[in-house]
Design a protein around this nucleic acid. Structure first.
Lengths: 223, 223
DNA sequence: CCAATCACTACATGGTTATGTAGTTTTTTG
DNA sequence: CAAAAAACTACATAACCATGTAGTGATTGG
């Protein structure tokens, strides 16, 4: 980024925060940096959405707890108007639900509200450069959510043959169709199905398939 | 954290990095902070794994590209020895595969190698306090992976009633059991099941359940 | 209001399934 | 090698399922 100070090169920021003092504080901090300009400041999403500035800004600093439309919901609406926006949530809320909702809706960063002046400025610059500013405690929750993704669970002791039969059931095959497929008698298929039912503690094809999929024993082909 | 400087209150760090100058550079930077002590320094995972310091340290700064065992793999091994470790990856590698492998294996942070001295110190302190230090560009990739997670797919036009019937099928209920459950005749259940089959283009309960689960139309209760 | 659509009921029927029971062959284990 | 376990086959049968067909009542849209 060149240091020539032309307005077209500045990071244009919009602030949406209902607390007047915080709003003005952020504006003062950011305007004090030579690379950042605060285009406008709103107390709620509704008035921001009516402003032309949304189309022409780079970064939105967005609170969650706002009068009217919540910030998490506002993310989607702002991005509908201007898909190239980088939206940084700044909130006292550290609960995973709000974090993930905002991020899922398209926010690219999430800071805790007690962020310091230098951090705020750095966050805006990071976001402008394609990074995601996140308070470490938020990042921890995000990473924890990755690490708790369901792993493929135990095979529940199904043999290879049994898993194959289960897969064929899930594909809609009858006993006789499966028998032809794997070169057994229909009763041979029945034998394996009994074992599957016993191991999965179910009593029907539907339930077996449901449990098999839920436990990662079989997979659906991409549809 | 108290400022009394007793060793039992210091953040104990282990460094695993094959480049000697980087290794020593980090050691010097971290030891210059009054709250951090570098317990030991290794050039590869193997020698670190043989050291008693792994059991007694708080933080590991771990490179990925190492001789012998890669850092991403070392994460798991270190955590087996000491599950309360906080492992921060520091690497030139910015590719999503290594990022996610390391995080999935249990790393709690990930920094780009050109991290500055103040950032390195702050990262160690953040990690010690339960946060996850991440370079913004890394955080961006992590968030992007969340945002590309499969959303619940289209309902394939199933009515509420049809979805309920499908869920009950997945739970192993027969037509007559479902009829009792939702106060319809058996034929009424059959009517809905026909519609389900038509909409999902299937011909059996098993296939309907499989497709329903794969498309997020129904969910399995936690088992 | 009338026509179309949806939700539900009813009847029919051949095919399929789930389960009990028992025997034979093959594989594994001590 | 012998015994045990697993894999497979076979028979029986009541219950269930999938599908064709048709009718009624309620709701919706023109």
């Amino acid at each position: 980024m060149e240091e020539n100070g032309q307005e077209s090169e500045l990071i244009r920021v919009v602030i949406v925060e209902d607390n007047q003092y915080i709003r003005e504080g952020w504006e003062t901090i950011l305007d004090s940096d030579s690379q950042i300009v605060v285009k406008s400041v709103f107390r709620d999403c509704e008035s921001a959405l009516e402003s032309d500035d949304i189309e022409w800004c780079d970064i939105i600093l967005l609170d969650i707890q706002l009068p009217g439309i919540m910030g998490t919901e506002g993310v989607e609406k702002f991005l509908e108007i201007n898909p190239s926006l980088s939206i940084i949530m700044i909130s006292v809320m550290e609960d995973s639900q709000h974090i993930f909702e905002a991020l899922q809706n398209g926010a690219i960063g999430y800071l805790i509200k007690k962020v310091g002046p230098d951090e705020l400025i750095q966050a805006v610059k990071d976001a402008y450069e394609g990074g995601s500013p996140m308070s470490p405690i938020i990042a921890r929750k995000v990473i924890a959510s990755m690490q708790t993704q369901p792993k493929k669970k135990e095979k529940l002791d199904l043999t290879d043959r049994e898993q194959e039969v289960l897969r064929l059931l899930a594909e809609g095959n009858s006993y006789s169709a499966i028998a032809e497929e794997i070169y057994l008698s229909v009763d041979g298929v029945g034998y394996h199905i009994r074992n599957i039912y016993r191991k999965l503690q179910v009593n029907s094809k539907a339930e077996a398939v449901a449990k098999g999929l839920a436990n990662g024993l079989i997979k659906m082909a991409e549809s």
